[in-house]
Structures are given as structure tokens and as C-alpha cells.
Design a protein around this nucleic acid. Structure first.
Length: 559
RNA sequence: AGGGGUGUAGCCAAGCGGUAAGGCACUAGACUUUGACUCUAGCAUGCGUAGGUUCAAAUCCUGCCACCCCUGCCA
């Protein structure tokens, strides 16, 4: 345990925990990460896992990863396997990795039998439609099932026969006997076991009855010694039921405590398994890890760091108020982290050839700071020479106001090299610029400039012998900007093709410093004055593909 | 006889009876061999709304309004 006096709560959940701990209601903070292995995690899941892991860590406790695999029709072992890696990438190590199906189904079954014995559960032979029809509505109470008061031993016999496979799917269910007139519909005799003759990815055909979430989840928490079950606000209505099962099945105190928080919504971000799946299947994206997806694997491939995601989630605050956060809020943390950790490189995305007419020697070596904000980052070597390339938009014949770059007859500093002066523009037959010529100022070498010449701007460049072509992939938002809540629009019936923006993946070639040939997939760089990029896994020895994570802020072009 | 939640700036969010923190975004400006980073300044006479209590209310009380969730043998 930690010293409570040294902990400053940063959100209402921590405040509640501190109260419990000080009152002796609980003595430790054990949380859980309970995914249903049925899909790829996205940024919304990240928030839930981050809260559970960070809260436990703050109080000296731990977190379990538990596959909440109680519905074999939806689940798949491949997902379960990927979650440990995803968690590790996020920087979290679960204390235990648990498959509810494998470890808890036996005990949960026994507990269900005991519930029947206690007169608090019964086998109901109403069909699904009949159950729905008798559940009542939001404003009217439900009517009891005709099987509600059947003898205990009859329910017990039937339940055992259900387990033995004597009945087909849907024939009967086990229901908790709670209160058909409760204003909270969750409490109107919820189904807790249903018959499913389906092969489970973990338990195979051992079971043909499976517990429902509402029954399983509180018991799983209790069995594991979880003290705080931190989940999203969707489950608020289920909390009385959660407590009911603790009270009537577990019967021990203190109860694990469920506390809910608002889930994360990002403006203009498409989530939702079925929509993403459709895009994957139709080949409209690169895969589940498409960098335009805000899945964990997608963000990772895009070059977004786990640290940025964590900072974003924690700094945005944890409350119960619903919110939709603009992407710019996430982007801030992406840039902040990448700025700290990336090596700088000079890459010319849209090259313009420059011939230095007064330099005829072999290319000379220059040195580039790997990260000017980090003294320990070191330097790497690059070159200056007769033939160099600069960005097309770093040269203008008729410059816009306050233009700091190269103009005909003007000067500009080449980063970590020399000041050059543009002397001429050579055109092609079709009227386009072929190349430009310039003279370098020998006495203006970076770090040893005695020229006395002031250049207003500094631009990046690559020297011909030190450059190699790379492929650049840039990504636009998958959905049109007017759809701030794409999932809501989809739910409202707007067709997905209407929501999707066109041409959101752009491939181009660029000229990069040769040291980038040492890059490994997921290595991250800042292409100076341009943005942050990461090497894509599709890269080969002959084709280096860099994904653009995000651009640098640009206060010039904005104006 | 509906219940459970949430409303503080464009977006998040502190605040817990003593006179509206902070961040993002935005706007100026400084610095800069990245128009990045960093720095400085600006940005709610008002806290969904109407009353009430109080010397004092975003905070307490009452009414009203808006939005979200709940009628799966999903989680």
C-alpha cells in the first residue's frame, strides 16, 4: 500500500477510492481490464484500460487482463492473443492473464445452482419473444413468468438437463428472481444462463450453456479479488444488478465497487467494428492496422506513440460528462511526444534542383543535430555539394508577403551548410522551371560564419550523392469533416459511402538523406520543417515507405 | 409508476459557501540556422434556467429546461 497522505486525487474516481481506503471499506486497489475478445481495440478501449491500469498503479495495486469470453458466437482466440501485445505496447503488464471461460465457468455454474437452491433463480421456458413481451416497458411494470414460482428441485433438474445438452437453443433460460416491477429494467428477472450449442474458442464443446455478462462480470471480479471495477457509463444502469449478484451469490464483503466514467469520443473519427470491418473486407483500406484507423494497431502503424495516447487520456480528465473531443487535442500530445523523441532528418518532398555554380569540388561532409532539443541525441553526417535539391515551395519568383525563403537574386541559409544566393532560373520548353542556379558563400559555413550576410530564412535540402528516393504515404481523415460523429450518422442511417471522404491515402516520392536507410519499421523521425514520419512495415530494401504521422504546426501557410 | 445520469468559454476541465485554476484551439508579440520547439500577453462581470436561503452562491434549497443511457437469450 501507498501512503494515502502522499496521494493527490486527480479525478472523482481517485477521490472515491481515497474515501474508501481511509474509511477502511477497502484496503487495496485491484482493477481489471476485461475485453470481450471480439474485435480490435481502438482509442476508446485505450481510455478504459489506461484508467484501470493507472488507477491501480497509483495506489500500489495491480490489474488483471481478463477475457470476458462468455459468448462463443462472437469471440475469437486470435483477438485474445493480440491483447497482451497491445497492452504491452501501451506500457502495461497485467498481473494475471485470465480466460473467464476456462477458469470460471465451473464455479459460476455451481454458483448458479446455489442461486436456484436459495430460491433466487428459476428455469424459465418462455421464448425470447415472450420474455420481451412480458418485461414491461419504460413506463409500465413487467408481468411475472408463469415459471417464476416453479419448485426449486424442478428448476434444478431442468438447469442440469440444460447443461447436459438435453434442450435445443432458446428452449429455456435460467433467470434471476428479482423484481418484475422494478423501474430499472435490468432488475426485471434478467436471464443469466442461455443455451448455445456452439463451439467455444477456448472450451470447445464442453459447455452448451453460457452465463450472461450481468451474472458473470461481478462474480469474475469477486473471484479475482478485484476491488474497483472501472467501466464506462453504459453500465451505470447495470450497477444495481452487479451489486445484487455480489450480495446474493458471492455474499461476502466488501463488494468490489463498480465506478463508471464517460467514454471517449473523438470528433470526426470512425470507430465501430462493423464499419471498419466492411472497409477492410472491401479493400478500401490497408487492413485493420490502416493508419487512418484509430485502432491501436492503426495508430501504432501511423506512428502515434503510446505515451502520447496516455498523456492525452490522462490530461483530458476523467469525468462522467459526455464529451466529444476535437482531434486537435490528441494531435497536440502526438506532436509533443514526437518532438521529444524523434531524430531529425532532411527530406525533400517536392524537389527542385539547384546547381551551385561556384562549387566544383567533391561533396563535403556536414553535421546535423539529431535533436536540437536533446543535448544527448548526438549528430549525424550529411553532405553539401554542387547539385542539391530543395523544396519547390522554398523558392519563389514572385514571393508572397513576409516570405523568408529563396527568391531570384535573394539569399537563404541551407540548414547546417552555407548561405546561397539564387542567380538564375532555367526553364524547360514547356515553360516549367527545370532547375535554378545559385552561388554559395564560402565564408558562411554554419558554426563558422564570417560572411556578415544575414539570411532571413533557413531551409532544408539534400545533396545528390547523399540522397535516395523514398515513398511517402500521407493520410487524410477517413470521413468527411462535416460528420463530426460518423458513428452516430451511420446509426441514423446515413450510408457509409456518403460519410467517407474520397482519396484519403496519398502516395508520393521524396528525396531523403541516406542515413534513413538504417531505419527499421516503426522508427520515428522528424522530417525537418515538414512533419513526423515513421517507417512502414510494407517497406523493402528497394522501397522505403514512410507514413506521415502528423505535420509540424505551420503558422506561415495558415495566414 | 418510469428509472438512472450529465449540464462551467469554440472543445476538454478545476472548483466541494469567501468572490471563476489549467490545457487544447484561437489572436497578438519575442526568440529561433526547423516559419517547429520555447517564451510573453490576450481570451467567461459569469457557471443550463427561474426563484429562494445567506453578509457572501458555480457551490445549499425548490421548480423548470436541454441532452445521454435503459424494454438482447450482446457486452
Amino acid at each position: 500500500m501507498v501512503n494515502l497522505d502522499e496521494i493527490t486525487p486527480t479525478n472523482f474516481i481517485e477521490e472515491e477510492i481515497i474515501k474508501d481506503l481511509k474509511n477502511g471499506v477497502n484496503t487495496e486497489v485491484i482493477t481489471r481490464c476485461p475485453p470481450e475478445p471480439s474485435g480490435y481495440w481502438h482509442i476508446g478501449h485505450c481510455k478504459a484500460w489506461i484508467i484501470n491500469f493507472e488507477t491501480a498503479k497509483k495506489f500500489g495495486g495491480y490489474t488483471n487482463l481478463r477475457m470476458d469470453d462468455t459468448n462463443p458466437t462472437k469471440e475469437d482466440g486470435d483477438f485474445a492473443n493480440s491483447y497482451v501485445d497491445d497492452l504491452r505496447w501501451l506500457g502495461y503488464e497485467p498481473k494475471n492473464v485470465i480466460y473467464a471461460s476456462e477458469q470460471y465457468f465451473d464455479i459460476m455454474y455451481k454458483m448458479a445452482e446455489q442461486l436456484i437452491l436459495d430460491g433466487k433463480a428459476y428455469v424459465c421456458e418462455l421464448s425470447a419473444d415472450e420474455i420481451n413481451a412480458t418485461r414491461g416497458t419504460l413506463t409500465t411494470i413487467g408481468t411475472p413468468s408463469p415459471y417464476r414460482d416453479r419448485p426449486v428441485d424442478e428448476s434444478l433438474r431442468l438447469f442440469r438437463e440444460m447443461k447436459e445438452g438435453k434442450y435445443p437453443d432458446g428452449k429455456m433460460t435460467l433467470r434471476a428472481k428479482i423484481d418484475m416491477s422494478n423501474p430499472n429494467i435490468c432488475m426485471r428477472d434478467p436471464v443469466i444462463y442461455r443455451i448455445m450449442h456452439v463451439n467455444h474458442y477456448k472450451t470447445g464443446d464442453k459447455w452448451c450453456i453460457y452465463p450472461m455478462y450481468d451474472f458473470a462480470h461481478p462474480i469474475e471480479d469477486a473471484l479475482e479479488g478485484v476491488t474497483y471495477s472501472l467501466c464506462d457509463i453504459n453500465f451505470e444502469n447495470n450497477r444495481p444488478l452487479y451489486n445484487w449478484f455480489i450480495d446474493n451469490v458471492w455474499k461476502r464483503y466488501p463488494r468490489p465497487r463498480q465506478i463508471e466514467f464517460a467514454k471517449l469520443n473523438l470528433e470526426n473519427v470512425l470507430l465501430g467494428k462493423r464499419y471498419l470491418k466492411a472497409l477492410v473486407n472491401e479493400g478500401k483500406v490497408l487492413g485493420w492496422d490502416d493508419p487512418r484507423f484509430y485502432t491501436i494497431v492503426g495508430m501504432r502503424r501511423r506512428g502515434i506513440t503510446a505515451q502520447a495516447i496516455k498523456n492525452f487520456v490522462m490530461n483530458n480528465g476523467i469525468t462522467k460528462a459526455e464529451s466529444i473531443i476535437p482531434l486537435s487535442a490528441l494531435e497536440y500530445y502526438i506532436r509533443e511526444d514526437l518532438n521529444k523523441i524523434t531524430t531529425r532528418a532532411m527530406v525533400v518532398l517536392d524537389p527542385l534542383k539547384v546547381v551551385i555554380t561556384n562549387y566544383d569540388a567533391e561533396p563535403m561532409e556536414i553535421e546535423i543535430d539529431n535533436n536540437p532539443n536533446d543535448e544527448n541525441a548526438g549528430k549525424h553526417k550529411a553532405r553539401f555539394g554542387k547539385i542539391i535539391y530543395i523544396e519547390k515551395d522554398d523558392f519563389a519568383i514572385t514571393p508572397p508577403p513576409k516570405y523568408n525563403r529563396l527568391t531570384l537574386g535573394g539569399v537563404v541559409r541551407l540548414k547546417d551548410a552555407f548561405i546561397i544566393k539564387c542567380t538564375d532560373v532555367i526553364y524547360k520548353e514547356n515553360g516549367e522551371i527545370d532547375y535554378i542556379t545559385a552561388e554559395y558563400i564560402p565564408s558562411s559555413r554554419s558554426g563558422n560564419d564570417t560572411s556578415g550576410i544575414k539570411a532571413k530564412g533557413t531551409i532544408h535540402f539534400v545533396e545528390e550523392s547523399n540522397a535516395f528516393p523514398i515513398t511517402i504515404r500521407e493520410f487524410d481523415n477517413l470521413t468527411k469533416p462535416e460528420y463530426l460523429e460518423p458513428n452516430k450518422a451511420l446509426a441514423d442511417g446515413v450510408p457509409i459511402d456518403e460519410i467517407l471522404a474520397e482519396n484519403t491515402l496519398h502516395e508520393s516520392t521524396a528525396l531523403a538523406e541516406k542515413f534513413l536507410q538504417n531505419a527499421k519499421p516503426e522508427d520515428k523521425f522528424q522530417f525537418m520543417r515538414k512533419g513526423f514520419y515513421t517507417l512502414d512495415k510494407d517497406s523493402t530494401e528497394n522501397n522505403y515507405i514512410f507514413n506521415k504521422t502528423i505535420s509540424l504546426k505551420d503558422t506561415f501557410n495558415k495566414k
